[in-house]
């Protein structure tokens, strides 16, 4: 292929319900690389796009949770396989977006993929680690099962374009939730790539929805939307938290504010978006 060949540029779109629509608003915004050079016009999701994503996520969540935990683990692992096979492409996007050295970018992508694999292994461990039998005083068989909160909306890290997306997305998904994640506004390209890979990873449409757009426009809508059960705003500026939590209180959302991507925080995040459901059953002849 000639070096002089004019490259074919990609249109960067949203991921909603397993499909890749443009924003219903028709809006896009310009994304540039670390040196200010134009990369792409990215779809700028509107509140209506978010609303559509919530409808899709709600419908998909029941299906996702009804699959076996083993199966959910395999689907997440499949996405990790897809990401691994396109490791170089993601790393290039991270390098371009973040302006880091290519070695740093590759390491970051490796960590992100390994973390996805870590979550793949969680799906069928959650019940044993966080649930169990309860020795109540009386003739009852009593056990507690962790169940997902439902639909979780999350805002990805503003600068850490790939790794910063993985934790806020896959903790909730591994626990059986469906997720609507708002990618880094300024560095959305790695997130869009991952979304494209998810389309060939056996995810039921609507389990993973990726929006690109503006935090200030969409985060408040995420917080106030009544059909969203959980909200991850750990990556949103701390000054915005009070307002967002107040809005989330309207429908008593579970809100996660933690920061960082260490294992302990990752497990706290995962725990935030599971509920404990306890069953009592009589025992008698």
């Amino acid at each position: 292929m000639s070096e002089n060949r004019l490259e074919i540029r990609k249109t960067y779109k949203l991921l909603v319900n397993g499909a890749f629509p443009r924003s219903e608003s028709g809006r896009t915004y310009e994304v540039v690389d670390a040196e200010g050079k134009f990369i792409a016009n990215v779809a700028q999701a509107s509140r209506k796009d978010l609303r559509e994503a919530v409808v899709a996520a709600r419908a998909a969540q029941a299906k996702w949770w009804s699959q076996s935990a083993y199966n959910r683990g395999q689907v997440i692992y499949r996405l990790a396989e897809m990401a691994e096979s396109r490791h170089a492409e993601i790393a290039e996007a991270v390098e371009l977006s973040e302006g880091v050295k290519s070695k740093e970018a590759r390491k970051s992508v490796s960590r992100g993929i390994d973390r996805m694999v870590w979550y793949a292994g969680w799906t069928d461990k959650i019940a044993q680690v966080f649930g169990g039998a309860n020795p109540v005083a009386g003739p009852f068989f009593n056990f507690s099962l962790p169940v997902p909160s439902g639909v979780v909306a999350a805002v990805a890290h503003p600068t850490n374009s790939f790794e910063g997306l993985i934790d806020v997305t896959f903790g909730a998904i591994a626990a059986g939730n469906s997720v609507i994640v708002l990618a880094s506004s300024d560095r959305p390209v790695p997130a869009v790539l991952l979304g494209e890979m998810s389309a060939v990873s056996d995810f039921p449409g609507g389990v993973l929805n990726i929006l690109t757009g503006k935090v200030e426009e969409l985060a408040p809508v995420m917080a106030s939307h009544e059909d969203i059960d959980g909200l991850d705003i750990g990556c949103v500026q701390a000054t915005e938290h009070t307002a967002l939590i107040s809005a989330a209180a309207g429908s008593i959302k579970r809100v996660f504010e933690g920061q960082g991507f260490d294992e302990t925080t990752a497990v706290r995040r995962l725990r935030t978006f599971i509920e404990t459901s306890t069953v009592w059953h009589t025992k008698g002849q």
């Binding site: 083993y70 683990g73 292994g121 680690v129």
Partner: peptide, 18 residues
């Protein structure tokens, strides 16, 4: 296959196993 897949998930989570 499922047994290998399941215990793969434990290898990096032993500290959560109790």
């Amino acid at each position: 296959a499922a047994h290998f897949f399941y215990y793969a998930g434990w290898a990096d989570k032993l500290s959560f196993a109790g």
